[in-house]
Design a protein around this nucleic acid. Structure first.
Length: 116
DNA sequence: AGATTGACAGACA
DNA sequence: CTGTCTGCCAATC
């Protein structure tokens, strides 16, 4: 009710609701915003980022737990520091991890994935 | 004003 | 198991 706002605004609301120390995936945010298919729209919403500093895009990660390489505010390395500073559990760069979004550093979704 | 892209994710072959 | 394709909405060219 009284929320005819586009998914875009919906995404901002969800992302801003992510508690400190936890992270959410694009799919989860998109799911809370309406449909998990909007995952690509979630990234777009954060891309416009009409309210910088207000939307913790660093708390939004891929389904694999990796981040957006090159699109983070200052680099995936900075993101790891921020999340780690918030108390988010990270997995060390495993050699067998071909998923090296943030230099092999993946967020431990098993522990820190945000759940409403 | 129309076509294409876009920080993804899931389903299918 | 890997690779490819589609689906969704809005913004941009």
């Amino acid at each position: 009710m009284s929320t005819p706002e586009s998914f875009n605004e919906r995404v901002y609301e969800v992302v801003k609701r992510i508690p400190r120390g936890l992270v959410a995936t694009y799919g989860q945010v998109a799911a809370l915003a309406g449909n998990h298919r909007n995952a690509r729209f979630v990234g777009y919403a954060l891309h416009v980022n009409p309210e910088p500093g207000m939307i913790p895009c660093h708390r939004v990660v891929f389904r694999d737990g990796s981040l957006a390489p090159g699109f983070a505010f200052g680099g995936p390395e900075e993101q790891r520091v921020l999340l780690e500073g918030e108390g988010v559990a990270f997995t060390p760069p495993v050699k067998c991890q071909k998923n090296a979004g943030a230099e092999g550093w993946l967020v431990d979704l098993s522990r820190c994935q945000w759940q409403d």
